[in-house]
Simulated scan of single mutants.
Amino acid sequence: MGHIDREFHTAPDRQLLDAYSQTISHAVELIGPSVAQITVGANGRGGQGSGFVISPDGLIVTNNHVVADAKSVRVRMQDGVASEARVLGRDPDTDIALIRTDTSLGVAAPLGNSKNLKRGQIAVAIGNPLGFEWTVTAGVISALGRSMRAQNGRLIDDVIQTDAALNPGNSGGPLISSAGEVIGVNTAVIRGAQGIAFAVASNTANYVISEILRFGHVRRAYIGVAADTVALPRHIAVRAGVIAQTSVRIRRLEPDGPAERAGLQEGDLVLSIDDQPVEGVDDLIRLMNGDRINKPTEFLVLPVGNVIAKRVVTPSARP
């Protein structure tokens, strides 16, 4: 009787595990062929990293720190196709770089909308950690809207925290959802920590890619804040006249920066900018583009414990 009971209770568990495995395998089948191994340095003996194709004509996203000032970049795909590549543009502030191969690759990975992510959902990383080619690891999204420092010391906002295992060589590879969309660009691990890894959100990566394709670099307006994505209570959203479940809370202000001079304070919620809703740090990054430099910009904010107010901030060029 006990044997029958054990079979009864374990059958649903097996079904759940099978469904989990099939979900991950399907996502990997969709995105895996677009993941590239990237080698920099003469004769392919330099450092290695990962990347992923976003356009069949050979556009590849990777990390800025993977290609850095490399004189030569070589790309190899899962099917064995290898090609030389050139760097189209780099953005040290987000650790994103865009390269193009000399040959058409015929595969591409779709960029998903990172604004729709939720903590606890499946996250899968594909890359070339420690020289082990096209390795797959899986976990969950641990947190959203994190900030971390890039190698140049600047804060990268809108970072995804995951427990999917990442190691040196995963840098630049895709973090993907169970639907087979790229939701982040794997960028860093905390040395000495257990299972804490990070990826730049896909919406931020998409903005950087578009700027590089248009201008060769990323133009940015500067207001001098560090911020986090936080939940927005419904009663505040109703009062502000916005339809949103999340917003941005100012965590730190640069002394004498444009935001501080305009009267913004630590703890303020930024609800909208020039009547455009701000639902996350990625919106703040996107709206602070080069077109707003030296242009008075209206921020709708909720100061701590006070009523909703408007502040006019005049962004400067990013120093």
Rank of each mutant, 00 (worst) to 15 (best):
I4Y: 11
E7H: 13
E7R: 14
Q15A: 14
L16P: 00
D18T: 14
H26A: 14
V28F: 09
E29A: 13
I31V: 15
I31C: 00
G32I: 00
P33H: 13
P33K: 13
A36F: 08
Q37G: 15
I38V: 11
T39C: 04
T39R: 05
R45P: 00
R45N: 14
R45T: 12
Q48M: 10
G51V: 07
F52C: 03
G58W: 01
I60Q: 04
T62Q: 03
N64C: 13
A68P: 07
K71M: 05
S72H: 08
Q78R: 15
Q78A: 12
G80D: 15
A85T: 08
V87I: 15
V87N: 01
D91Y: 08
D91N: 12
D93E: 11
I96H: 04
R100N: 01
T103D: 08
L105W: 03
L105E: 03
A108Y: 06
A108H: 03
A108W: 04
A108F: 07
A108G: 02
L111F: 08
Q121N: 13
I122K: 11
A123Y: 04
A125I: 05
G127F: 05
P129I: 02
V136P: 02
T137R: 12
V140A: 14
S147E: 11
N152Q: 04
G153Y: 08
D158F: 10
I160N: 05
I160L: 07
D163E: 09
D163V: 11
A165D: 04
P168L: 12
G169F: 02
P174G: 09
I176P: 01
A179Y: 10
E181I: 09
V185C: 09
V185M: 12
T187I: 07
R191F: 09
I196K: 15
V200F: 06
N203Y: 02
Y207P: 01
V208L: 02
S210N: 15
I212R: 03
F215D: 13
H217I: 07
V218Y: 07
R219V: 05
Y222M: 00
I223A: 03
G224I: 00
G224R: 03
A227S: 12
D228Q: 13
T229P: 01
V230C: 02
H235L: 15
A237Q: 06
V238H: 10
V238W: 10
A240F: 07
I243A: 12
A244E: 00
Q245K: 10
T246D: 12
R251V: 01
R251N: 08
R252K: 15
E254S: 12
D256R: 13
G257H: 00
G263N: 06
G263M: 04
L264D: 01
Q265V: 01
E266C: 08
G267L: 05
D268M: 06
D274T: 09
D274G: 07
D275L: 08
R286H: 13
M288W: 06
N294Q: 05
K295G: 01
P296V: 07
T297A: 12
L302P: 00
G305E: 10
G305S: 08
G305V: 11
V307E: 15
A309F: 09
R311D: 05
R311C: 10
R311H: 12
T314W: 03
S316T: 03
